[in-house]
Simulated scan of single mutants.
Amino acid sequence: MNSQAADAAPIRLGTRRSHLAMTQSTWVAEQLRAHGHAVEIVEITTEGDVNRASLAQMGGTGVFAAAIRRALLDGEVDMAVHSLKDLPVAPEPGLVIAGIPVREDPRDTLIARDGLTLGELPAGAVVGTGSPRRAAQLQALGLGFEIRDIRGNIDTRMGYVTSGELDGVILARAGLARVERTDAISETIDPLQMLPAPGQGALGLECREGDARVIAALAELDDADTRAAVTAERAVLGALEAGCAAPVGALAEIVEEPDGSLEISLRAFVGAPDGSFELRRSDVGSYDDPVAVGEALARTLLDDGAGAVIPPRETPNPTTSTKEAGA
């Protein structure tokens, strides 16, 4: 144990009060404690937790992160744990993502009545999701589903299926794994059918850029391969200048070449929520420059017509929301 770290003031970890957020934050706190750091968890209520309007109605970016980021900048907490898929791509002045731990499985899942898979659900089945990305890819499958816009935490969304209100819901496998609910999964969806959100399954550990002590502590949890992959994915989103309603998916994988060098294999999707347009492209590039890999793939997408279905990015607003928050 690092005795100097143990003797220092506890690192105050700010988190939302939701079950998933608390689970993620508690896991990070345990990892930091295992490295000899004292950690205190501080619960923070965000606009996204109290405003029950749909994410599309709230619009904008970062409602789940904004309150915690304000607390960080005001010195009320020392760090935050974000689901990277919920975090705006543009950096927040004064803050830095100092650690990105090993990623959970990034794939999406179906939770359906009677344990049915996507291929087994009948035409006309009602499937719930709050994500334009998921809706676009479901419609592109051409299976004749009715897509219902939903919000809520994991239990609320799963409850739509157990109550019989919906035939199925789409949730991120990572969130279900973290709250130990993978037993409810009917199908883990192949990325060939549904690419996840950029950064899905990964956590971003954020702190003030001048806080050397906390930066050093969070860097101990950083995983280089995960950072490279999610950086490439988020670079696609950034280069597309996509707003919160943009149906954009991306997944990067680290590939070892025969000579032992590493490359990033990156796939991306852009589509229309009604299924009228879909575009899938892929590229391979340098492990050492993930931003360039993502930006190059974004240029290909734009050259092939992606701009026609990408809404303009909103001006960041601390009272507005991000896409796909939660699961």
Rank of each mutant, 00 (worst) to 15 (best):
H82W: 11
E263V: 09
L176Q: 08
L218G: 02
M1L: 07
L195Y: 03
A66D: 00
R133T: 13
E295F: 06
R280K: 10
D105A: 08
L87D: 10
M194T: 11
D190F: 01
S163C: 06
R17F: 05
L32F: 02
A136R: 03
I147G: 07
I147M: 05
A245K: 07
A306H: 00
Y287L: 07
P311M: 07
T129V: 06
L176A: 05
V309M: 04
L13I: 02
G326R: 08
T188G: 12
A224L: 12
R267V: 02
K85F: 09
G152E: 05
A268H: 06
L279W: 05
Y160T: 12
G128M: 07
V255T: 11
V28G: 12
L110N: 10
W27F: 09
S54W: 08
R267K: 15
A71D: 03
T46I: 02
D303Q: 10
T322V: 08
T188C: 13
F64T: 15
F277P: 13
G99N: 02
L262M: 11
M194V: 12
I147A: 07
E295L: 02
V236D: 00
R234H: 06
T319D: 14
S3Q: 14
P10H: 01
Q24D: 14
G14H: 03
A232M: 08
G210K: 13
A197C: 06
R173S: 09
I215A: 11
G62T: 00
G59R: 13
D108F: 11
S265A: 15
E146Y: 09
L141A: 10
T315Y: 05
G75S: 04
L87P: 05
G99F: 01
L176R: 08
L203H: 13
L297K: 00
A327T: 08
G199D: 05
R213P: 01
E206N: 01
G115R: 08
L143K: 12
E120P: 06
D86V: 03
M194H: 09
I100H: 01
G36L: 06
A296K: 12
E43H: 13
